[in-house]
């Protein structure tokens, strides 16, 4: 990771480009887009062809195969990214320069962008598509062509970025390391809890709800957990407070 060299006072590069680096968020957005295009293509090609009857070998050869690629990928993504962020943490946050801290704030904001980008596909795009599928066909398994993409593809992906951004802040930014931000925690754990809430959803569809009524109380767990995204407002306030304070510190330093 590059860092800003603090040289003589006042001679620092303070152009926006030296603080805001788009390379990784652009790569992640591109990768997520490609993955989502692949998922959508897969659904279009195989949902009607092999996805209607989960007892068929064709279902295993396509849909369960996709799931079998997804499940280890989840583990790799979670363990890989999170442990990498933790292992490469800054062990001397007490010695950080304001320039470096400001740069990291923008990296954090862009990390949250990657999180929000992945959340869009899970919370909006594939979520409503779940209605278009389940209101159209007879549900015969917990692993439907819609759920294999929504719950085991897109949701673990945003959890990767969400927890990743939280860990990034905690390991790279003194104020987030000093005290845990509750709005940040909410904005990450709420959407994360949607995955375990799937247990309730499947329980209900197995024992209780035989028809697909999308506004059914069975689905309200997702709604309440989704509200936690509003805590991004608190996080936004917090980040703006920290950044404006850094601006002041850096201007004061430069003015000396």
């Amino acid at each position: 990771m590059s860092s800003i060299q603090s040289g003589a006072r006042g001679a620092l590069d303070r152009s926006p480009g030296s603080f805001v680096q788009y390379k990784w968020p652009a790569i992640s957005a591109l990768a997520v887009t490609l993955l989502m295009v692949f998922y959508r293509w897969f659904q279009q090609t195989y949902a009607w062809a092999t996805g209607l009857d989960s007892t068929l070998p064709e279902f295993d050869a396509t849909w369960m195969k996709l799931l079998s690629y997804e499940l280890p990928l989840i583990g790799i993504m979670w363990v890989g990214l999170w442990s990498w962020i933790w292992m490469t943490r800054d062990r001397h946050l007490d010695k950080i320069t304001p320039q470096e801290e400001l740069r990291r704030y923008f990296t954090l904001v862009l990390f949250i962008f990657s999180y929000a980008f992945a959340v869009y596909f899970a919370g909006s795009f594939f979520a409503e598509q779940d209605a278009s599928w389940h209101q159209t066909v007879v549900r015969d398994t917990s692993f439907t062509p819609s759920h294999i993409v929504l719950f085991y593809g897109t949701m673990p992906l945003y959890v990767t970025f969400g927890v990743g951004s939280f860990l990034y802040a905690m390991t790279r930014l003194p104020k987030f390391a000093e005290r845990v931000s509750i709005p940040f925690l909410l904005a990450v754990t709420g959407p994360l809890m949607i995955i375990p809430n799937l247990g309730f959803n499947e329980w209900g569809h197995a024992f209780w709800m035989m028809e697909e009524f999308f506004s059914a109380p069975l689905h309200w767990g997702f709604v309440v957990l989704g509200w936690s995204v509003l805590a991004l407002g608190g996080l936004l306030m917090q980040i703006m407070m920290h950044i404006t304070e850094l601006f002041k510190r850096m201007d004061a330093e430069g003015a000396v």
Partner: peptide, 10 residues
């Protein structure tokens, strides 16, 4: 409530 900046020791 959700927009409040609340922190706890780490």
């Amino acid at each position: 409530f959700l927009g409040r900046v609340v922190t706890v020791p780490n």
